[in-house]
Amino acid sequence: MKWFLGLLASLPLGLGYALARVLYFLLYHLFRYRRNTVDENLRWAFPEKSDAERRLIARASYRHLCNLFIEILSSTRLRQSDMSERVTFPNLELLANATENFQKQAIVLLIHQGNWEWMLHAAMDQMGVSVDPVYKTLHSPFWNQFMLDARSRFGATPMPIDRVGREVIRGRKRKRLIAMLADQAGPKAAGYWRNFLNRPASFYRGADKLAQSMNLPVVFAQCRRKGIGHYEVLFQEISLPPHDADPELILERYVLAAEAAIAEQPETYLWTNRRWKKTPPESFLAKQTHNDTEAESIAETRENPL
């Protein structure tokens, strides 16, 4: 497997993208890789769209997924400057101001959109600061090690999500950005539950707690595709110290920013992810029922005033 991936990574990007078109045909049409999952995710996320519109998004997302696979493989042999030329940061000054020109740590929240791997490498090159990604251990030891090697290639220090608190405290004097793909499924009991793309979803309580306890600024990074193999990253302020007393507001603002980014360019989001497989706890369902009942009562009062 390793030699085969190395062979694919050595291909010129143009030839790699041609191979991605073949891979798209195999995954989407022949093997129907997670087609049911993608269709269900899109039905929930975009109930206002027609079946034909959702099919167009699905097909475009599979094409992007196949291109992304080639790009991630190529990141194991491309120069950092090559990726930096393909990823731009139009409003980098927002992040620079939040971190006082990168003199202190900050949390950068991401989603599985665009090319988050190239974004990490390009950010390190253009900002001159370490970008240390937080990762969730993959089930496959091979792919887990592959991604760790790729992400640490230029000096970054990946941190497992179950040890991120200790790692951040230990390296609190370092100048760095802590990158979190925060749209991954969090724990059922201890997670932050909220509707995400019209379905209950759990989020890890990591970014909000770290930001509160260590006075770290929190910024959202939206990775937009500008063309095949070219991206731009737009930063958006989520919360700056001193933070609001309610730490959940950080995750709430993140979810709103994530939903807006997905709505803007849905075909570049990772719809094959089984993001909503966890069943929400009874406490969340009871809260949702109460909110729905309250909303119906308010609507009825407005329609039938005394």
Score class of each variant (00 low, 15 high):
5 L>F: 11
21 R>A: 12
22 V>H: 06
24 Y>I: 07
28 Y>D: 04
30 L>H: 03
34 R>L: 01
43 R>T: 10
46 F>Y: 08
50 S>H: 05
52 A>R: 13
55 R>T: 08
55 R>Q: 14
61 S>M: 05
62 Y>T: 01
72 I>M: 10
82 D>P: 03
87 V>F: 07
93 E>D: 14
97 N>F: 14
99 T>M: 04
102 F>M: 06
108 V>N: 04
116 W>T: 01
121 H>Y: 04
123 A>Q: 08
123 A>I: 00
125 D>F: 15
128 G>I: 02
129 V>T: 07
141 P>H: 04
145 Q>M: 09
145 Q>K: 12
146 F>G: 02
146 F>W: 10
146 F>M: 06
147 M>K: 02
149 D>I: 11
152 S>L: 05
154 F>Y: 06
155 G>P: 02
164 V>Q: 08
165 G>S: 15
169 I>Y: 13
171 G>D: 12
177 L>Q: 04
179 A>C: 07
184 Q>S: 06
205 R>C: 09
211 A>P: 02
221 A>Y: 00
228 I>Y: 10
229 G>I: 02
236 Q>I: 09
239 S>H: 02
239 S>Q: 03
243 H>F: 00
245 A>P: 08
251 L>I: 12
254 Y>I: 08
259 E>L: 00
261 A>K: 02
263 A>I: 09
274 R>P: 08
285 L>D: 10
289 T>C: 13
296 E>D: 14
299 A>L: 13
300 E>F: 15
303 E>D: 12
305 P>L: 04
